[in-house]
Amino acid sequence: MRVWKFGDDIDTDAIIPGRFLTIYDPDELARHVFEGTRDEFAAQAAPGDVIVAGRNFGCGSSREHAPLALKGAGIDMVIARSFARIFYRNAINTGLLPLICEEADTIEEGSEVCVDLEEGVIEATGRRCSIEPVPGFFREIADAGGLVAWARTLEEVELCTGSRS
């Protein structure tokens, strides 16, 4: 798992620019992922590579094209210090795993990472960093592989019952 390192406030316009929003196919979107801001990504990202970023990854638009483009490029997880709210939900819903790691900044570009979801740790650059557990109601959706898979068997939903976070 090779690390692609990004900074703070990576917005969804950077992930997939507005002119490609008529496209919905992840593979086709992946050809334009980070176009204009990090052109080598689309050509060189390999399945299993990981994005590691700073604060507020995925800020901006609600476009689900952003997680889809990353998935199309073979990215299964993004590790960041924090995520923008809509991107976080879109990622969970589309089967891209967003992992919050307070020490994400210490992980270096090009390093190999090993993620142990059971233990809640990432090993990278000779360091072990802890990752925050995905909240319960999101974990169920993530474990199902996304919201479509989770919802497909539902006939109806139970309203206004829930839990505390």
Binding site: T94, L147, V157
Partner: peptide, 13 residues
């Protein structure tokens, strides 16, 4: 604001 998958769920349920 929500994503399209959340909206698919809203349209359904």
């Amino acid at each position: 604001g929500i994503g399209s998958t959340d909206m698919g769920f809203v349209l359904r349920f």
